[in-house]
Amino acid sequence: MNWQAIFSIYRYEMNRTFRTIAQSIVSPVLSTVLYFVVFGSAIGQRIDTVEGIDYGAFIVPGLVMLTLLQQSVTNASFGIYFPKFIGTIYELLSAPLSFIEIVIGYVGAAASKALMIAAIILITSTFFVDLQIAHPFWMLAFLVLTAVSFALLGFIIGIWAGNFEQLQLIPLLVITPLVFLGGAFYSVSMLPPGWQTVTQFNPVLYLISGFRWSFFGVADVPVGISIAAICVFLAICIAVIWAIFRTGWRIKP
């Protein structure tokens, strides 16, 4: 293992985060605070509690998940797409690096950054609501597993994308709607029965439900299924990346 190279990629990517701190950190935090004000305070005044939980607190796990998913996908996709776009990827390919090391460097940095922002949002939310975390270990596990698997997904998108439009396509058109429809701001039991069934097919539902369970001990779906779902997703992403690098798809003619 070329640890030095993994560390170099990781540090280089993290530097990029701090160099563009307004765009990388301030903006996601600000938009989450806005969600919080609109949903938590404005709408929250009309909805007292959901499943016995104060509405303001109820939406916190959903908000954290929303940001975590968006951030890990966009950071990782941009991280690998940018060298492809400007051509500096030649350097990664001609270095004594295995693909595993490239993935660890980029995905590790993207996941770290997403986790940092998630932590900031979580801390910020404690200024607005009373938060108790029932299962801290599982909360952390959900955060890390989600950040890593969606950073892997982002990496795949970055390799696949041929232009900036494609790069944004999946985060905007797939991830964000799935999070909104995955019970970020409501409990699935509040939906009409037909929609409850449809929602079962939304993979993000399992993430948000499991993550919320780690805070409040209540979930829309059994937590075991949530954990299994995220593990399956992680395995699929790893398999796809392995296949990409075996064939050199879109990277190496």
Binding site: Q4, S8, I86
Partner: peptide, 21 residues
Amino acid sequence: TIEPFEKVINTVRFSRGLFGK
């Protein structure tokens, strides 16, 4: 082909790091 926003010395250090040095 060069990362436009990074400092000269950092890009050069980065290259060295990629080679495991």
